[in-house]
Each structure stands twice: as C-alpha cells, then as structure tokens.
C-alpha cells in the first residue's frame, strides 16, 4: 500500500485517538489530586512519538514495561495496571 492509501484508511482514526488522548490529559488536569506513576509513564512514552525513529509501538510498549529480570518474591495481586510502578513499589 502507498502512504496515501494508508492515510486514507487510518488517518481519521488516528486523529480521533489523538484528540481522545488530549481530552484525557485535560480531564486529568481538571481533576483534584496528584499524578501517579501511570501518568508519568504516559508522559514519558508520549515523547517517543515526537521523533522520526522507527519501532514507535515497540518502544512505547517497552517504556511501560517492567525492566527488571528477577522474578518477584510472590504475587500479591492478579492484575496488571499498564505501567511499571518501579522497584520501590515492589513491582519488579
């Protein structure tokens, strides 16, 4: 497919997702309380979209990932939250 064909197929969807993300960040800003590690991770990952480097999807996924290698002592929950809370939080 040509670049134009890809744009024809996906541009409006990508535009819509970007506006959703912008509105989400505005919504967070309006809400009382503090940021947490999830928002920090999201803001860090956003920077990966700015440049022209390839593998953006891979890099964003990696940015949200637990970077450690050792198994954790025990599972205290079954669920994942989407961002790594950091070693201090016992997440790795």
């Amino acid at each position: 497919m040509t670049r134009e064909q890809i744009l024809d197929l996906y541009f409006l969807e990508a535009r819509g997702k970007l506006i959703e993300l912008a509105a989400f960040l505005d919504r967070v800003d309006r809400a009382p309380g503090r940021d947490d590690f999830r928002l920090t991770a999201l803001r860090d990952a956003l920077r990966l979209l700015g440049g022209n480097q390839p593998d953006r999807a891979k890099n964003v996924l990696t940015a949200f990932s637990d970077p450690t290698a050792e198994p954790i002592p025990a599972a205290t929950t079954k669920s994942a939250c989407g961002a790594w809370p950091g070693a201090a939080a016992g997440g790795g």
Binding site: L61, T62, F64, S65, D66, P67, T68, A69, P71, S79, A80, C81, G82, A83, W84, G91, G92
Partner: peptide, 13 residues
C-alpha cells in the same frame, strides 16, 4: 504471556 507491564519480563523468563 503476562499482561501489560509484565509481558516483556514474563516473556523473557
């Protein structure tokens, strides 16, 4: 393989 932030590490392990 695990979900979300746990997937990469879990895949390697």
């Amino acid at each position: 393989t695990p979900h979300l932030e746990d997937k990469l590490k879990g895949t390697r392990l």
